[in-house]
Amino acid sequence: MSADRERREILIATIADLLDGISHVAVGASSPIPAAGAMLLRARNELGGKPAVRISILGSQAHNFFTNGGIELFDCAAQGRVDAFFLGGGQIDGQGNINLVGTGDYPTNNVRWPGSFGSAYLYHLIPRVILFREEHSPRVFVPKVDFVSARAITPEVPRRGGPYALLTNMALFDFDREAGGFALRSVHPPFTPADVKENTGFAYQEGEMVRETKRPDAATLALLRGRIFDELAETYPAFARTMMQAA
């Protein structure tokens, strides 16, 4: 249980680092770890006297300032007022395309996931999209997705949005929009670059030295286990409870 908590705490702290410098981050449905990362960034900036961060968490009343209904997040993104967002995927391929629909033949997919949500639209419009998927396995990270819910690169239309990084249980990758693929940035302890290679079904760039993902420091952990999990409990009660019980 505590190994699981530590793993999640590394992910949350890494997300807060990836968000550094943004002024508005939105978090979609069923995303407790990204929501916690966004809250950590907000709290850290506030305590460190850095510029304030706005957070919009879908499904939250307390951490959501929208007043124009469900459409407002999408309008806001179209206006360039959302700097960062998170997308996942049942499958993610080496070109950064994501599949939230299913595997096998559409429409009677033998594995069916919930659906594309806002991905097909938001991927075009939000500059810093962080791909987040905990499971790191060859069935998730495939050479080519079975269904493209949202495409990473579309030279045929102008766009400001797209993938910025990919974060998993094992590693952190950067996305290179020029090259159209991922590059391994760091590996979370106790995993090695060889573990990452073995569990990734697509090709990616890897430097000579791959560093270890930074573990959160004591101050970050104290903030997480106190204020952040408290804030998170309003939208994600089950997740916050599990994290606090483990602490």
């Binding site: 999408f74 949500f117 075009h124």
Partner: peptide
């Protein structure tokens, strides 16, 4: 995709047959 449903409703709200929408291309 979420904003396409809102766009469809908006078209009906305004009494026009369709609504243009950003993104989606490539999907």
């Amino acid at each position: 995709t979420c904003p396409a449903i809102y766009a469809g409703l908006l078209a009906a709200q305004k009494g026009v047959p369709f609504m243009p929408i950003a993104g989606i291309i490539g999907s």
